[in-house]
Design a protein around this nucleic acid. Structure first.
Lengths: 216, 216, 216, 216
DNA sequence: GATGAATGAGCCTTCATTCAT
DNA sequence: GATGAATGAAGGCTCATTCAT
């Protein structure tokens, strides 16, 4: 039946437009912030019409949500895969931090959108996206394992994960914007160093960190 | 001339209203965010009419700015006075962190407003409020002193200060909202502990922290 | 009975305030125009409070109307008395024009208010003030007499009166603002000359005008 | 490239709407006056929505200005072309007056808008539109020429032009509204007659006026 | 399906008017 | 009676959303 091919083609086109729009929205929201951005700008930046934009997203808020959903999903997946490679929890942490840093360095507009929202997610406000929730859960699991293995200090894993999440964001922003660090590798090591200080037991901190062990 | 008393009375009334409005705006902005808040809501929450609201603030943006200005000023002053009491840098840091935590615990709505807007963070294109600039300067000085005295680890003081500032905010939010910590004293100690991990040299971390020394 | 004195005192006070307000309104309306003028400005210029202003006038529109009523009344009276003195119609016209010019030169603010608003003119749907109606009637009578006596040209007296009225206003404005004529006597003579050209028969125009006859 | 046609189409549509709105604004402003007119009324009268109205004019004031600009321009052009045809200054004056009258008889709403503003232009108030300034300049030139050729009486050309301008407005209003003259030809002759009386030397007035010469 | 012109609900702000002191 | 602080109705303008082409 021809309907199937038709349907698939439509699916594909819709998907294509959604991605086009998300890329555009990312840039526009990063530049002006969500509220100051107009749908017309998003459409123009995407190179499509308002009507097409509305044919793939029901409203402005949905574009914003989808942006977080999509980028968040990719973000999560990236970190997830980083976690799967490694076994010792300290190495896993290092890989996760590196993945975190690399992703945001590669997606500076998304990072700016994130920063603009402030730390609303930290207080569990309604607007906090599911992706954030899942991200926090991911880190919570990792940290719980570290505590269990007596590598990380004994504290509430959720609080620690939330703290680490914010710490990475803030420090990344500080390094990139305030400082003049540009090399992703060095940024990742500095952020990882900060994170380790936050979570590792003191005696673990004295040992050679994973990123130096790697080089060796 | 009677005009003087009259002028003073008006001054006082205006001041009273401004504070009333700031308190109301703080709650409304905390609840719905700046853009979703309507001036009518702010007025109603303050228990006054729109006209009266506009008689003490020229516009919506000015209310927001004044809120940051006023609370930021008080915030700075509180920390400043904490810094002036103490001499050893580690004690000074402890006092500053405690003042930071106490202020935000006492002003939870302002804290939420702060968390909501990315203004305080280093987004670059977003104009951070003057109060925030001064606040960062304050912490940068303290940290530079700590580095100089070889108590804190050797790093860019501005990056460190920005990081610490964000770390405190995030962890405070995490402790209060995610966790169930309510006692300001314990919160302050936990935040201070995190901050010390971030800035102190490892050998310093091994020593008894100021808050335990205080108790003894 | 004491009530009578009381009532008379109140009457007097009200009257006093009304005049105070009209003087103030005249200046304010002249400066900014009716719509751009605020009641607060009128009150302040009058040196009284808003409440007092509203105790003697029901609303903004009433102040405007009363201004036209009052000044118009005085204006009419001035011209009326000028008309009563003289007998030959050409002399009467001259006296009336002189009175017209003198009044407006003495009340420049009222003149500006008059010029600003099209009320005085025959717009049809705009309610011309009763005072203006009476003024036009006055001039219409004078002109009808002139036509009757075969001194003025034979035309519709109402149209001629309206035209003359407007002509005087416009030329007065032109002489004072565009030109640099300041002397009321010369202004009056030039305006009268224009008016005569408008209404007198050509053969009458050739005769010595009343203002020169006066001097002689 | 197709963009060109697109741009031209948009240009045309915008132009069409601007004229639609100006026509509507003309009627609404004539009826209620500028300040009492609401943008919604102007839009409704034009048969479009508020949004569309604002898509072709930035604000209320701009509609008013554009109205004066556009009509004023046409007005000026009409008179200019009348002036260019004729050589003897008295004939030129007659043609200009006729053009003046015809234009306003054809655009009664614009005339009413004009009348509503009063004679502000006569006192050189800031609000006086550039079109008025140009119009006055036009008449001033004509009158200066007449004085030069010793057809018009020797007086300040600017004062005379201003007077004539006002005289025409006022008399036209008187004839149309107060009187019951409807025939543009007769109105023009009566206005021209008044104007000639205002500007021509007496000996010239005795000669056959241009409009009678024309008929012959 | 794609377009973007058209719509109009909704928000910020002003100022005539009221009324408690 | 005088005051002027307080009120809130009304209007200019924006922009998310719709729908005719």
């Amino acid at each position: 039946m021809a309907g199937k091919g038709r349907a698939r083609a439509e699916q594909a086109r819709t998907q294509m437009y959604r991605e086009l729009v998300l890329g555009s929205a990312e840039r526009v929201f990063a530049e002006r912030g969500y509220h100051a951005s107009k749908m017309q700008e998003v459409a123009t930046e995407a190179g499509i019409s308002l009507g097409t934009l509305y044919s793939v997203f029901p409203g402005k808020g949905d574009v914003f949500e989808a942006l977080h959903e999509t980028r968040g999903e990719a973000f999560l997946a990236r970190i997830e895969s980083a976690l799967h490679e490694a076994s010792p929890v300290r190495v896993a942490l290092w890989h996760a931090v590196r993945a975190f840093v690399e992703f945001l360095v590669e997606h500076p507009d998304y990072f700016r959108v994130d920063l603009r929202e402030g730390r609303s997610w930290a207080v569990g406000d309604v607007e906090a996206s599911p992706a954030f929730q899942k991200g926090i859960a991911q880190w919570t699991d990792l940290i719980a394992r570290g505590i269990d293995e007596e590598v990380f200090r004994d504290d509430d894993p959720l609080v620690l994960a939330t703290t680490v999440f914010g710490l990475m964001q803030v420090q990344l922003a500080a390094l990139v914007v305030k400082g003049d660090e540009r090399d992703p590798g060095r940024i990742a090591r500095r952020v990882a160093s900060s994170v380790e200080r936050q979570v590792c037991r003191l005696e673990v901190l004295a040992e050679t960190p994973p990123w130096e062990a790697e080089v060796a």
